[in-house]
Write a protein that binds this DNA or RNA. Sequence first.
DNA 1: AACCTTCCCTGATGGC
DNA 2: TGCCATCAGGGAAGGT
Length: 289
Amino acid sequence: MPELPEVETLRRELEPRLRGRVIRSLSTFPSRVFQLDPAVLEAAVTGQTIHTVSRRAKYLIFELDRWYWIIHLGMTGQLTLLDEPMENNGSSSSGGDTHIALVARLSRGRTLRFRDVRKFGRVMLFSRDGDGLDSRLGSLGPEPLGSDYLLEDFLGKLAQRKARIKSVLLDQKLVAGVGNIYADEALFKAGVHPARRVRYLRRWEKVRLFETIPQVLERAVLHGGTTLRDYRRSSGMPGTYQIWLQVYGRDGQPCTQCDSIIQKMVISQRGSHFCPYCQPRKPRPRPVA
DNA sequence: AACCTTCCCTGATGGC
DNA sequence: TGCCATCAGGGAAGGT
């Protein structure tokens, strides 16, 4: 499931290779992912230059002359960049793959392709003239790898919450870009049980969580993200962070730290993985180290 | 406002 | 081998 590290990996790969390219043509194929009339999208982006590729939360943003062209990968979205123009006599077809949503042909023979099997992804277009982008992407919290990620803000938001910490971490208003995998991994690293109620967390536990979130995300970016099934880098290659997962998807296997068996429970309709010893239900005294 | 549930969507998986 | 139920989950919508 593409979360911040996967989208950021794509951004880093695409930025230098798309910057300055012109979108020569865009072909779309019927798909629920389009938030606007695909014909309008085709007309709007054709001829536009890609100035930068940025990211906000799990949204990838192509800044064009007049537009912000935005893609969210949802659950199974794949964005690949081919160095050759599409084979087959120039017409951008889907090559028989029914899951392809769009094919963009770029200047100097590059092809950008978006494929999404489960169609939870989204393709959006906003005018650069309108309101700021942020207001149109919903109420998103700070970027955990950015300079507005601040402890006092984090603690202040948590102070108003009574739900379980796992479901609060999945709420993009607290921290933007964290999804199910990295929420579980950050909770493990912080030693916090996912089902703990936020109001009963000790301050030092919240501080540890504040610190582990960017640590886990940054390390995942370093490894090109996590590929469990569908996620692919822009080259089509899988990420490699799945090797380093400590709890996600490891239920029934021994904890790498203590050999306890990793457990799984459902919180907010999401599978939540944890070590019952490293992440006790009741807080232990603060470790000396 | 916070919280919770339901829904969307399709391929993989497992039971029988 | 085939059939069917179940599962995966980001984000929006709707109810309390």
